[in-house]
């Protein structure tokens, strides 16, 4: 069982500059850029809560809200 469960992405779109780093490096291709070149969550069901988009965002625009799993 994974350490964290995905809850939601908290994206501050006005801070996003559309560099596409999060989109490219997401291992599950959860994120996409919209017609205004801002990131949005296209496939939330695929997210594994690794939070690499949050760590690599140069604009501090992404936060992945997760829930810590209790040990079985």
């Amino acid at each position: 069982m994974a350490k964290f469960t995905y809850k939601a992405h908290d994206i501050q779109q006005e801070w996003c500059k559309g560099c596409g780093i999060c989109v490219h490096f997401c291992p599950k291709k959860v994120l996409e850029l919209n017609e205004k070149n801002k990131v949005f969550v296209a496939h939330p069901d695929k997210c594994i809560a690794c939070r690499m988009c949050e760590f690599r965002c140069p604009d501090l625009a992404i936060e992945v809200i997760v829930e810590k799993n209790n040990d079985p």
């Binding site: 500059k17 965002c57 140069p58 604009d59 625009a61």
Partner: peptide, 27 residues
């Protein structure tokens, strides 16, 4: 969240699209 450590009034920052300095700030 790292937002407690930043001066939000100055965001979005002046660095270009995809600038690595933002990632260093984040880390």
């Amino acid at each position: 969240s790292v937002k407690k450590f930043i001066r939000e009034r100055f965001f979005p920052h002046i660095w270009c699209q995809g600038c690595g300095h933002g990632i260093v700030l984040n880390a």
